[in-house]
């Protein structure tokens, strides 16, 4: 298995929205490398024709009726917000386009 580069760690940290220091990049690279080496043995089944299991319990078609249920009040909704204004969550400026 290839070792994990600093660049890769930085990319992962950005995807995960984790600000990392230079030191942390090195530390993560080393630790991830160690863990990935240790868990990579699962790859031995990668080519085998085995159905993957994502749910231990084989349920299907669990649905809810389309009936309105009471939710939270506006006050409850924003009660824990770090900042709120006029019943809306106030957040730092957003860069870029809407997704």
């Amino acid at each position: 298995m290839p070792s994990i580069s600093r660049g890769e760690v930085e990319h992962l940290a950005r995807l995960a929205r984790l600000a990392v220091t230079e030191d942390e990049v090195d530390r993560f690279a080393a630790q991830l490398d160690q863990i990935v080496q240790a868990v990579a043995q699962v790859g031995q089944v990668a080519d085998q024709d085995i159905p993957p299991t994502s749910h231990a319990v084989p349920l299907t078609n669990v649905f809810r009726r389309d009936d309105v249920r009471p939710g939270l009040s506006q006050q409850q909704a924003v009660a824990a917000a770090p900042a709120a204004e006029d019943g809306r969550f106030r957040v730092p400026r957003i860069l870029g386009e809407e997704a």
């Binding site: 809810r64 309105v68 939710g71 006029d86």
Partner: peptide, 22 residues
């Protein structure tokens, strides 16, 4: 639909902000 995809909140357009949430 009357309610959202994954919860029972109403989908009506134009409500007061954060009043159709759970």
């Amino acid at each position: 639909t009357n309610t959202k995809m994954f919860c029972g909140c109403p989908t009506v357009f134009g409500g007061e902000p954060n009043t159709q949430v759970c």
